[in-house]
Computed example of a mutant assay.
Amino acid sequence: MNLEFTKYQGLGNDFILIDNRENSEPLLTPEQAIQWCDRHFGIGADGVIFALPGENGTDYSMRIFNSDGSEPEMCGNGIRCLAHFIAELEASGRTEYRIHTLGGVMVPRLTAEGQVQVDMGEPQLVAAQIPTTLVQGEEKAIAIPLEVAGQTWNVTCVSMGNPHCITFVEDVAAIPLETLGPQFEHHPVFPQRTNTEFIQVLRSDYVKMRVWERGAGATLACGTGACASVVAGVLNSQCDRRTTVELPGGCLEIEWATNGRVYMSGPAVQVFKGTLAI
């Protein structure tokens, strides 16, 4: 059996998109997703995203398998790509969708400038909701010391539907990401593992970020990570509520609005289409 797919990228964070609207379960297994994501023996991607029927009154549902076969709750760059993919499938001229994810309902909107703005909802700051055991369950983990690789890091933990650990550094380019990333991801204080963002503040409205994504490793961009990092920046008096986040793959515009919700704006680009046997 051949299965059609479309390859998308958002700031170099790349995904295989599959039309899964006729079935409530993903058409690929996690093991097949690993094969498809392999950059030497498959298509190559950071993850596989499925556009499924909506749940609880939403227009669509989103499921994603990372390149290691794990399933995250949400993906910020991925949901922008999914919005473009859905718009192409529908060909209706519609520009806004309510999408059910394991991290909550997200609302992406395609703009006239070719960007996608996503209402990412409110960040979760309570330790038990992230989750982390770095502090007690109902406390917030803001600027808390964490020992990793023989060094003490001041970290702030935020959930954007998935867990993030953010630390501010003087030179983000000097961070040995491939060494430190896995040690943060698998640290015992993160029972569901964590995404990790290293942030260098250039101005209060402009930061540089490198990311180690849970289940995908070093990627060129992470939308939820950019959102979590601006929230952490505000909480630590490092960032404005509206801040540009520069990632290796490009820039995202993030706003933690006064209504408590986080808005992310950035590109989503179709790369190619194809079919592959399953």
Score class of each variant (00 low, 15 high):
1 M>G: 07
1 M>E: 02
2 N>P: 01
5 F>L: 00
11 L>N: 11
13 N>P: 04
22 E>G: 10
24 S>K: 15
34 I>N: 00
34 I>S: 04
41 F>M: 06
45 A>Q: 02
48 V>K: 06
50 F>D: 05
50 F>R: 07
54 G>Q: 06
56 N>F: 04
60 Y>R: 11
60 Y>E: 11
64 I>P: 04
66 N>A: 08
69 G>S: 02
73 E>Q: 14
79 I>H: 11
80 R>C: 06
83 A>W: 12
92 S>R: 02
93 G>Q: 08
95 T>N: 10
103 G>N: 04
104 G>V: 01
104 G>P: 03
106 M>L: 15
107 V>M: 02
108 P>D: 07
110 L>V: 02
112 A>I: 00
113 E>H: 07
118 V>E: 06
118 V>D: 07
119 D>I: 03
121 G>P: 03
122 E>Q: 12
124 Q>E: 12
126 V>T: 14
128 A>K: 15
135 V>M: 08
136 Q>L: 13
136 Q>T: 14
137 G>E: 10
139 E>I: 01
143 A>D: 14
150 G>R: 06
154 N>G: 07
161 G>W: 06
162 N>I: 07
165 C>S: 12
166 I>R: 07
168 F>T: 11
173 A>T: 14
174 A>T: 15
174 A>Y: 12
177 L>T: 12
178 E>Q: 15
180 L>C: 13
181 G>Y: 15
189 V>H: 15
190 F>Q: 04
194 T>H: 10
197 E>T: 12
197 E>F: 11
206 Y>C: 12
206 Y>E: 09
206 Y>L: 15
207 V>Q: 03
208 K>E: 14
211 V>L: 11
213 E>M: 05
215 G>P: 10
215 G>F: 14
215 G>L: 14
219 T>Y: 13
220 L>S: 12
224 T>R: 07
226 A>F: 03
229 S>V: 09
234 V>M: 07
239 C>V: 01
246 E>W: 04
249 G>C: 10
253 E>D: 14
254 I>E: 09
256 W>V: 08
259 N>Y: 10
262 V>N: 13
264 M>V: 09
267 P>M: 00
269 V>K: 14
271 V>Q: 01
275 T>R: 13
277 A>Y: 06
